[in-house]
Design a protein around this nucleic acid. Structure first.
Lengths: 118, 118
DNA sequence: CCAATTGTTCAATAACTTTTGAACTAAGGA
DNA sequence: TCCTTAGTTCAAAAGTTATTGAACAATTGG
């Protein structure tokens, strides 16, 4: 049971930008960046929306190539595809995350759930 | 007759990313970047769509704070707000433009119209 | 003044995106 | 096996964005 992800060279600039142009998804990416090296399961993000709505946003991020989701039991462990994005669009993710870190308009993710080492 | 633009500190990260997440607008920005220091009128971009559709996309870019439009006679002279964007989101525009420059999937702007010095 | 040029606005439509709830699958534990 | 937990899928509804054509405004040049 593995989920579909684009290859690095299939990642599209307008699609990545469009996917990041949504406050919920930007908040997810910001949070993933703040926990780099750690794989988080979806329920981590329940502050940002309902379970089914998160499933939708996380699928968008994955299909755009921004995140990777690994199936571990009944969990999907989610990580940022930082190396792939850096290779494809150097500097882009860094500048987006740096800008997102101090954006008070973005919704925040609490800090109340299990996490597992990547 | 001056057009509304956001102040630098009003420029929003998700709005900028969303606006750039469209191939037509990314092509406009890429072209503006390639002609930096030159103000271009709207008809420069007619390869990318109809007159009224361009009016729409150029308004989106302007309202997001990505471009500046100056009224000169019957023309709107359009420039990238590079300094403002660099101040607000350091490195972001550079990395977007660098990635857009070698994106063969983006529509191209011809090179068949008047241009005027900024 | 008249006509041409540049670009906007408006309303309609088409196309897409987001959100929701109910039903579902798959794995894990008692 | 049965129950729970984690997450997906589906279809409907709601909301948003993109595209079009017709009508409009403002400036310039003859």
């Amino acid at each position: 049971m593995t989920l579909p992800h684009p290859n690095t060279d299939q990642i599209s600039l307008p699609i990545v930008l469009g996917v990041l142009g949504d406050p919920t998804r930007l908040a997810i990416v910001r949070y993933l960046a703040s926990k780099e090296g750690v794989a988080l399961n979806c329920s981590r993000f329940l502050d940002l929306g309902s379970k089914t709505n998160l499933s939708y946003h996380l699928a968008k991020l994955r299909e755009a190539g921004v995140t990777r989701a690994e199936v571990v039991g009944t969990n999907r462990m989610i990580t940022l595809r930082r190396a792939d994005l850096d290779a494809r669009f150097p500097g882009l993710l860094d500048s987006v995350i740096a800008a997102a870190v101090d954006d008070p308009a973005l919704p925040a993710v609490g800090g109340h759930d299990i996490e597992m080492p990547a």
